[in-house]
Amino acid sequence: MNPFSKTIFFSFALLLLVCGGCQVAKNSTRRGLQNLQNEDLMYQYSIIDALMAGVFDGDLNIAGLKTRGDFGVGTFNKVDGELIMDKGRVYKVSFDGSVSEVSDADSTSAAFVKYFKADTVITLTGENLSYENVQEHLLKILNPNGIYALRITGNFTTMTTRAARPAKPPYHTLTQHLKTNQAVFEIKNTQGTCNGFLLPPYLARTNVPGFHLHYLSGDMKAGGHIFKFTTGSVRIEVDIAKGFVIENNTNPEFRAVNLKPDRGEELKKIE
């Protein structure tokens, strides 16, 4: 074999190796995404401590997020509003209170999603039933070590939510940003859906322990991160996850951020 032939041979062999590796990676990714649904797992992009520390940009677009679940919550790049996913569609509640279905080209800096399939349904009724009452009831009957996706629907007498204004670089911590860059909405006599999760304490620093839900009104005119509500009756669908998968944020900000500090107390103040 002459030198020129050797060069062609080795180049071709290298190309086959690279392409083969690409195909293996693609197949592994495809199998991994299928497992999220088949194995009943919660998926999250980035971790809550990174968002708390000011990692406000990410590389996962909404089209990609939709391959990882059809239900969930999160935010967008620059913490531009509140993300809610329901039945495979993704909506943004903006700082001005408006609600819109977002483009697949938009991106998220943190999101927590799952393929939702209720394992049980609970109906609660009572005069001036509050968000706190609902939480107390669920905490009594659900295992404290479980991972639960919750869809709560009803007519709400009052609903208090928030949405964040998009941040401008250089970014500060989320707590600092929200001090002067969040709008709080007092919504009256609204019908809609609360989507989110109840997570155990052992997921602290990766996700939000306890309850984390976002609201979307049925007329798509109001919503946001839920602080409190009152109602006369709610229907609670509970989906029990078998585990969770974390994908690190691939944005350079994530690699540079200091994740040593425990931001649990900061998180309590804004949740």
Rank of each mutant, 00 (worst) to 15 (best):
A204F: 00
L142E: 08
V257W: 00
L138E: 04
L36I: 11
G81L: 07
K6A: 10
S233H: 05
D96M: 03
T161A: 02
E101D: 00
I152M: 13
E82A: 15
K269Q: 15
R68F: 00
F254A: 15
C19R: 08
L65Y: 04
F112P: 00
C19I: 15
T29P: 00
H172F: 01
E39F: 03
I236F: 06
E82I: 12
K114Y: 01
E266G: 09
L138R: 08
G54Q: 03
T67M: 06
D49G: 05
D80T: 03
A105K: 13
K6E: 12
L51D: 07
A13E: 03
L259M: 11
S11Q: 07
F10A: 02
G74E: 07
F10H: 11
V134S: 04
G146L: 13
M220D: 03
Y91L: 04
L259D: 08
C22V: 12
M85G: 05
E266H: 09
V102L: 02
V55C: 11
K188T: 07
E82Y: 09
L60A: 13
K78H: 15
K228D: 15
D86F: 05
E265T: 12
I240P: 02
L216H: 04
Q191I: 10
L14H: 02
D262G: 04
A118E: 12
T180N: 14
G69T: 05
T29C: 02
E101Q: 15
F244M: 14
T180L: 10
G192F: 01
G154D: 11
T180H: 09
L178S: 10
L198M: 14
